[in-house]
Amino acid sequence: MTMLPATTEKKLGLVIDLDTCVGCHACVTACKGWNDQGYGVPLSDQNPYGADPSGTFLNRVHSYQVQPVDAAPQTINFPRSCLHCDDAPCVTVCPTGASYKRAEDGIVLVNEDACIGCGLCAWACPYGAREMDAAAGVMKKCTLCVDRIYNENLPEEDREPACVRTCPTGARHFGDLNDAESAVSRLVAARGGYDLMPEMGTRPTNKYLPPRKKDRPDQASLLAPLLDIKATGFAGWLDRMLGKI
């Protein structure tokens, strides 16, 4: 079985805002687009033009309909990828040492040359974050775009995971969650970022920000009093005149 590092210098990870995620799948598209070329074997597809296509993705978005009894119905879009856990069960379960967590930055990776495709890590991960590539027979997972974030051949603004770089609503953030002063740590503190399924004891690095409180259907708008304003005097005359044009 494979050892986890006792501590890691940094804890690089993602902070995902469930309030602003619109479920557009831009992150899914950018993730597979980038990770299909470069790090490890490609993310294969089976029967891609057929009636029942399938394939390997490192990041997926699930959309849920929520109907609270005392509030308006909501759609919650939930992006799901590896959470780069401190106590990563996918690492300790690996019989060959292929699955490992880096001491320097906490990223969980797979050494595909040592991976025998036994699937134990996918079984051990409570988040369903790992996918076995059906063509290559090795386990694929989010690398936090390790081939982007330190890549000095890329412009500096591109040295972040492809999913973060592409998100059109700014719902995905990347940084060091070990540094209390980092932008991501401050965001987590301000917005009540939380661990996914903490009861599993995995101590995930990635954090999710909960949706903000929504207006209730029976609640009057703060702007409601303004709806009744009638222009009087000169403004009223001007309003009537302009209304005729």
Partner: peptide, 14 residues
Amino acid sequence: SWGSQNAWLRQIRG
């Protein structure tokens, strides 16, 4: 403009 019409886009929403 996204992904040059990669066939795998179908798996997201087919």
